[in-house]
Amino acid sequence: MNKNEVKRVFRMFTIADYDKEEEFLREQHKAGFKFVRFQFPGFYYFEACEPEDVVYQLDFNDNIRKQDKADYLQLYKDTGWEYMFDVFEWSYFRKSASLEEEEPTIFTDKESKIELINRVFKRRMLPIIIAFFCCIIPEIIYMSHQWTKDGSDKMHALAFLVVYVILFLIYLGIFIHCGGGLHRLKKDYENGLK
């Protein structure tokens, strides 16, 4: 920890939990801990500050070219958001809620919230779905074939099979959690519940 940092919290938020992450950071700030740094895979560093209601918002900016970044950040600055940093294509912004009449938010209509989910899905879920069907599934089939075949190195095949089955289960967990989470968020946005 750097000398000003007073607290480190370990939390894991997946791509389907960005709204929970925003809420978590807001609560910390309210309690007098301002978010200053993130470290992979899930360390949140805080500095002591005056307790304040500060809204944190995350934007997924996968499609922003380098030369467009200044314009992008300027728009947030103009609308009163403090830009913090990017973590894996997610930009972190914050703004004090105490001066605003309405709850500050970067996405103000249903369509743009759904658009965000679609972008996250395309960029983060699609690659792992492709890897799942093009790599893990074929490998499991291949290795189980090797394992049962006469005259092959059975131990070798079994070891790989176990690794791939574990990967298969991890992937399944990710699909269910993230896919389900994104789907629920999208439904909530569509129905105006969030």
Binding site: L75, W81, E102, F107, D109, S112
Partner: peptide
């Protein structure tokens, strides 16, 4: 109607 920065940026790009 106060359009948010994220919504504005996304709409303009699209």
């Amino acid at each position: 109607i106060v359009i948010g920065a994220g919504t504005m940026y996304g709409s303009l790009s699209k």
